[in-house]
């Protein structure tokens, strides 16, 4: 990770990357999002590329809560042409 971290830091100037040493614990990545969510990924015994992959995943996420999506299409304006009723004449 020592090799990949500086490059990751440089390529993402919008992120604040801090390293901490916590003795007696497994290595982990913690991500704090702007919407006050926090996500933690354990990276115990992973190769450096895999750690980088996990870090990139955290970068790419918005910090939503992981839920089953009810629909893959989210809109605030459901209809443009209006709902059809029996009164509509063309």
């Amino acid at each position: 990770m020592e090799s990949n971290l500086p490059a990751f830091k440089e390529s993402n100037p919008q992120l604040e990357v801090i390293t901490e040493l916590s003795r007696g614990q497994h290595p982990c990545l913690k991500a704090f999002y702007k919407n006050k969510n926090e996500r933690v990924v354990c990276v115990k015994n992973l190769a450096s590329e895999d750690v980088l992959l996990h870090a990139t995943r955290l970068r790419n996420a918005l910090g939503r809560k992981v839920k089953k999506l009810p629909t893959r299409h989210v809109t605030r304006h459901p209809s443009v042409q209006g709902t059809w009723t029996t009164g509509v004449r063309f």
């Binding site: 893959r72 299409h73 989210v74 809109t75 304006h77 443009v80």
Partner: peptide, 9 residues
């Protein structure tokens, strides 16, 4: 079916 401002997965 999209209009602008929508988000899709």
């Amino acid at each position: 079916k999209v209009s602008n401002g929508d988000c899709i997965y």
